[in-house]
Design a protein around this nucleic acid. Structure first.
Lengths: 224, 224
DNA sequence: CCCGTCTATAACCGTTTTGTAACCGGCACG
DNA sequence: CGTGCCGGTTACAAAACGGTTATAGACGGG
């Protein structure tokens, strides 16, 4: 699922990009309206996250231009209290909006709701190698075995690892993504969660084949 | 899609009516609160546009009365600067508001956003597997058994599950769809409603075959 | 106005999930 | 060697969850 993130604020753009990448989406970024439209043309993303307040071509103009040629879901970012912006955004065909500041989790929730409404939800469950995740059902299948039920946190952890399958994900990132903001000294939670997840998905939890430790760095999911 | 427009200002009422008719909606009108409630009763519109400043029963009273019997989306019209009205309208359960003057396009944008939020953009299928829902009669048939009468909330819940038959629907989504926006801490209501619905549609409510729990995720309707 | 139905709210229980602490063993380092 | 850090494991407490029952208020039809 390709997504286009348009925001002139570099930090926010990167944050959103990071969030979506972690969630398993393919992300493209644009810093201004012109670049946004160019990228939109060449990449045809499946969803657009669009800031309103931008120098040059404003979010409105970009939204209008996009709507002239596509019904792709558009989420607009507004600052709190600018009711008029909001109305205008909806008028121009935006599908949803988010007032800054917002949490990454909120953004994800909205995006998912939007994709669902647009009938574009992941047709194939998130999968890599022998690991197939069913987000709706809260289950994983390893190879052809029976689906295993996961808890909310286990699901989130596995989702993160799956989104970066084959690559190490640092403990800090995992902590932030799974629990939201949290003291990075709180490694015990992650230790525990990894342990519990291994009990569920590893043939022999004592010698992990899938969820391996990258000492001093984090964890990674092995896919062949 | 039936809509009720309530405003004592004849011109504005006609303008709104015209706008909505042009947009393809079926429009009913009322010039005062009393007529509004009468029409609401007899016609059960799918959305209400309601002016606050009216002689006789004010928009507030009408809104309150409507909310006592329905979760139908309500948009209230206020004059600019009357913040108190606005707050009170939202407290009374209005779903959105518009400050006069506004453009027809703004009104349409808001209405569409509201319908989308209420998940009313398209009709839902009435049957899947052994479950057949009769929306008008407020009844279900399971297989060839006698129809069972459902309450308003039970109907809405089942409708939602039926629309996603075979897939888990999250508790949050059910809460929003059945009750409108509601504190997600209010799981008790859902618990209750599921329980009562199971009593009605399950052969053995203690071991549900149709309405199953997806622990930590939500509920789903099993269709073979 | 009364009565039956429907809905909201609370309480209780057993189970699952999550958070916290303690302990173990390997390993690097002085 | 001893010490400290890291990750894994075990154990247990706290919180959340889901099912159930009970009760009171709201609603709607006579």
């Amino acid at each position: 699922m390709k997504m286009l993130v348009v925001d002139d604020d570099r930090d926010l753009r990167e944050l959103i990009g990071f969030t979506l990448t972690q969630a398993g989406y393919l992300v493209m970024k644009a810093a201004d309206g012109l670049a946004a439209l160019r990228t939109f043309e060449s990449e045809s993303p499946d969803l657009v996250v669009l800031d309103i307040n931008m120098p040059g071509a404003s979010g409105f103009q970009v939204c209008e231009a996009i709507r002239k040629r596509s019904r792709v879901p558009v989420i607009m970012l507004t600052v709190r209290g600018e009711e008029e912006d909001l109305v205008r955004a909806l008028e121009l065909g935006a599908d949803d909006y988010l007032t800054k500041p917002f949490s990454p989790r909120t953004l994800l929730a909205r995006i998912k709701a939007l994709l669902r409404r647009a009938g574009m939800e992941n047709p194939t469950p998130l999968a890599a190698g022998r690991v197939a995740l069913d987000i709706d059902e809260h289950t994983v299948r390893i190879g052809n075995s029976d689906p295993v039920r996961l808890t909310k946190l286990e699901l989130r952890l596995l989702q993160m690892l799956l989104a970066n399958a084959g690559h190490t994900v640092s403990s800090d990132r995992l902590l932030i993504q799974v629990w939201g903001h949290r003291n990075s000294a709180d490694r015990q939670l992650l230790k525990q969660l990894v342990h519990r997840l291994r009990q569920k998905i590893e043939a022999d939890p004592a010698t992990p084949q899938l969820l391996q430790t990258a000492a001093g760095a984090g964890y990674k999911l092995i896919v062949d």
